[in-house]
């Protein structure tokens, strides 16, 4: 990606695109991958409230729909905190 010249950048180091960190995928940091078992999931959303990387996808009805591997760093908190063992961690293979 060609970086902007000083003449093109907004002044004052202001970032004008809110939430554009989404463009930066941290998923490749992962050495362990969470595997979600939708059968066991009771949609308690504990994984959602404890996920540091906003990687638990929740729909309008408040149901968990999966894990966003673009950002998940594989910390394993979700698997650790899941009361139903609906998430487990596996070694990441690429």
């Amino acid at each position: 990606m060609a970086l902007s010249s000083w003449k093109e950048l907004p002044i004052g180091t202001i970032i004008t695109e809110p939430g554009n960190a989404r463009e930066f995928k941290t998923g490749d940091w992962r050495s362990q991958r969470p595997i979600w078992d939708s059968e066991k999931c009771i949609h308690c959303l504990f994984c959602f409230i404890y996920c540091p990387d906003s990687s638990i996808k929740v729909n309008e009805e408040g149901k968990m729909t999966g894990i966003d591997l673009d950002y998940c760093k594989g910390c394993g908190i979700c698997a650790e905190e899941c009361p139903k063992e609906a998430i487990h961690m596996e070694i990441e293979k690429r």
């Binding site: 930066f24 950002y71 760093k73 394993g76």
Partner: peptide
């Protein structure tokens, strides 16, 4: 949003 560079398992973003 996701895409921040906190360490894996950091409590700060939580």
């Amino acid at each position: 949003t996701g895409g921040h560079r906190a360490c894996s398992g950091c409590a700060g973003p939580i």
